[in-house]
Design a protein around this nucleic acid. Sequence first.
DNA 1: CCGACTGATGTCAGCCACAGACATGACCGT
DNA 2: ACGGTCATGTCTGTGGCTGACATCAGTCGG
Lengths: 199, 199
Amino acid sequence: MDPMVRWETGATERLQVAALELFTTQGFEQTTAAEIAHAVGLTERTFFRHFSDKREVLFYGQDQFVQVFLDGVDAVPSPAAPLEVIASALRSATAFFPDGRRPYSRARQTVIDQNPALQERERHKLAGLATAVAGALRERGISEPGATLAAESGATVFRIAFAQWIRAGEERSLADIATGVLDELGHLTRRPLPDPESA
Amino acid sequence: MDPMVRWETGATERLQVAALELFTTQGFEQTTAAEIAHAVGLTERTFFRHFSDKREVLFYGQDQFVQVFLDGVDAVPSPAAPLEVIASALRSATAFFPDGRRPYSRARQTVIDQNPALQERERHKLAGLATAVAGALRERGISEPGATLAAESGATVFRIAFAQWIRAGEERSLADIATGVLDELGHLTRRPLPDPESA
DNA sequence: CCGACTGATGTCAGCCACAGACATGACCGT
DNA sequence: ACGGTCATGTCTGTGGCTGACATCAGTCGG
């Protein structure tokens, strides 16, 4: 193309942008990988060199997100209750989604919510996150099954909070919402019977 | 073939058996759908009439399992703490996996554990279970996010217990293991700091 | 300053998952 | 006997995804 520049830079990012755009306007299944690639002047083969599969174009970069979670785990001094560690991880993770990112997250989630295959991948990524956190908890001396229970609970809290964060009309920060959900989790096992009058 | 019988009966089950056998001996990716079908005298096209996709041959029938979980939810009188409802659901669900089923579950899980695509599907099914249970909890008057938190926690307990149940050498019943894990969950938010002398 | 090397890309060929359309033939009720 | 149903087979096509090989700008050692 331009004789001075052999390739445009940031092929990965350009592909991601084009993919979200196409998925939004015509749907995930109705969009072919070749179509996305051609939209940014590349070929299908190159698309698959950047992303291991078609779904991954929407999830690429989440490994970085896992690291933020783990940083939050490491941020709390070592002998601590599992829930405290989880709270720290959530603080760290939620900081990764400032309010400015909300519109993008909403658009992305709209696409995911309309495709079972994408929901599968999303759950899978979150499961990987929980597995990583569970490993970190074990290294802190928390034994199984407590480590996995805590990690999965943290992932669940994040998921619920995130879903609320991108809901239409919601304006609280992700951190604030997550704090509230985590609080609910704390009540889960403590809550007494609502009414002793039960049959 | 046999002029008296046009088709062998139970095509779905025969396909499932052949699939597990082939996946075990040569791996999931190395086995084509056509291969499975031909192993039981059918064609690839027929395979996809029985299962929506290749992975589904290992998961077909789980909708029934969800129902067992929901039956457990309904089995406890209406005003009850979320954790009690979850406990009931777990009792009901674990009864669905008697010890005689353990060898089969082990073989199946071995295949799943070796394949990311299958793990994805497994998580997806479990997520669907949690969603269904959360809905049932909401109908019992438990509001969000408590309903989802409780349902997801129950699913996590089941997952952990199930993984332990099929571990080599494990001989306790699934119900016993699940009870223990659920107990751990109860301690999660209550547990004081571990021994400061740890490590 | 040149030639080997690297790295992102294109090209080509092919496998396989999966789906639509239509044909077949045993069974079943009437 | 006949028409409908239903599980299956056959044929054909699309798209996800991969291996092998070519290309060619920039880079770096000599």
